[in-house]
Simulated scan of single mutants.
Amino acid sequence: MVKIHSTAVIDPKAQLDSSVEVGPYTIIGPHVSIGAGTVVGPHVVIEGHTTIGRDNKLFQFSSIGAAPQDKKWAGEPTRLTIGDRNTIREFCTFNTGTVQDRGVTSLGDDNWISAYVHLAHDCQVGSNTIFSNNAQIAGHVEIGDWVIMSGFANVHQFCKIGAHAFVGMSTSLTQDVPPYVLLNGNPAQAHGVNIEGLKRRGFTREQINGVRAAYKIIYRSGLTLEEAKAALLAEELAMPAAAEQIRAMREFLDTASRGIVR
């Protein structure tokens, strides 16, 4: 049987796998689906059109799937989706999407989300990320795989952060961040490549050297972004062992709608 504490309030229309555990005083609404092995702690509220995958751990006092904090929202049935094996610590707030965007806020797999993290409407977060305490993410933000958000970092709406980037403590982001870049400050400034993170994830020396070469083209060469893209393409051809990584940085420049932190 579903392991539901006697004080929890679960709407009969909610869909919970038989292995789901629900703690005391938790409230789960009618449009919620929760997959096998997920544990929901005490005093959690899960509402809205929210889908949660397998083997997640939600700690106490989080608000999951509440209405978006957007005055334009008019009650549309927008969604929140959470993948598998995520840890979501205390007092997190994740909102559903809006029809002005794709209508869904999403969190991938294997993410570690610390206490007091806010994930606003229409955010798209990849997998294997780490969000330290009080990271605050405004609406419509895209965050790639393996990104690390340090404590008290905050991100302006519509920004994009590329995969494997590292955002330092109390950093304030108002522009996009290319993949692999390490940055810090308020306003944010780039401070090199997230080399330690790439080493830990098994990147080869050749791949890391390629990322460093691409970083120098973007940040140290004095080239315009259009000139940098052409130089990156040449570097991509010259360094086949790191072509995938250089291409990711070059293609990111084409999608950076707010300009990049530079």
Score class of each variant (00 low, 15 high):
residue 154 N to G: 13
residue 139 G to K: 01
residue 24 P to M: 12
residue 83 G to D: 14
residue 261 V to F: 04
residue 86 N to H: 00
residue 121 H to W: 10
residue 115 A to K: 12
residue 93 T to Q: 11
residue 31 H to N: 15
residue 110 D to K: 02
residue 84 D to C: 09
residue 230 A to E: 12
residue 71 K to S: 14
residue 170 S to W: 00
residue 100 Q to R: 12
residue 70 D to P: 10
residue 49 H to N: 14
residue 193 V to F: 02
residue 4 I to N: 06
residue 195 I to W: 06
residue 201 R to E: 09
residue 127 S to G: 12
residue 262 R to G: 10
residue 250 R to I: 00
residue 21 E to W: 01
residue 235 E to K: 06
residue 111 N to V: 11
residue 152 F to G: 07
residue 187 P to Q: 11
residue 4 I to M: 03
residue 142 E to H: 15
residue 163 A to W: 05
residue 81 T to W: 02
residue 133 N to A: 11
residue 16 L to V: 05
residue 149 M to H: 04
residue 156 H to T: 03
residue 156 H to G: 07
residue 251 E to L: 10
residue 47 E to A: 11
residue 119 L to Y: 13
residue 235 E to R: 03
residue 262 R to M: 09
residue 18 S to P: 01
residue 12 P to Y: 03
residue 105 T to A: 08
residue 50 T to M: 11
residue 12 P to Q: 09
residue 233 L to F: 05
residue 2 V to S: 08
residue 211 V to Q: 02
residue 160 K to I: 01
residue 159 C to P: 08
residue 253 L to E: 06
residue 72 K to A: 15
residue 178 P to T: 04
residue 15 Q to F: 00
residue 36 A to V: 04
residue 140 H to Y: 12
residue 191 H to K: 14
residue 3 K to T: 08
residue 102 R to E: 15
residue 245 Q to S: 03
residue 70 D to W: 09
residue 189 Q to E: 11
residue 15 Q to S: 10
residue 182 L to H: 08
residue 38 T to K: 07
residue 180 Y to M: 05
residue 180 Y to S: 04
residue 95 N to C: 04
residue 150 S to T: 12
residue 259 G to T: 02
residue 163 A to N: 02
residue 68 P to V: 08
residue 213 A to G: 06
residue 21 E to K: 04
residue 175 Q to E: 11
residue 48 G to L: 07
residue 213 A to V: 07
residue 52 I to S: 12
residue 9 V to P: 04
residue 122 D to H: 11
residue 196 E to G: 02
residue 71 K to I: 15
residue 147 V to N: 03
residue 132 S to R: 15
residue 96 T to M: 14
residue 240 P to C: 04
residue 17 D to C: 02
residue 27 I to M: 10
residue 178 P to Y: 06
residue 60 Q to G: 14
residue 16 L to Q: 00
residue 133 N to I: 13
residue 207 Q to E: 15
residue 228 A to R: 03
residue 233 L to V: 01
residue 257 S to H: 13
residue 21 E to M: 03
residue 231 A to P: 02
residue 224 T to W: 04
residue 141 V to F: 10
residue 75 G to Q: 08
residue 15 Q to M: 01
residue 106 S to D: 12
residue 130 I to H: 13
residue 152 F to E: 11
residue 172 S to P: 00
residue 22 V to N: 04
residue 9 V to N: 07
residue 39 V to S: 15
residue 130 I to R: 13
residue 95 N to S: 09
residue 163 A to L: 00
residue 222 G to R: 04
residue 37 G to Q: 02
residue 79 R to T: 15
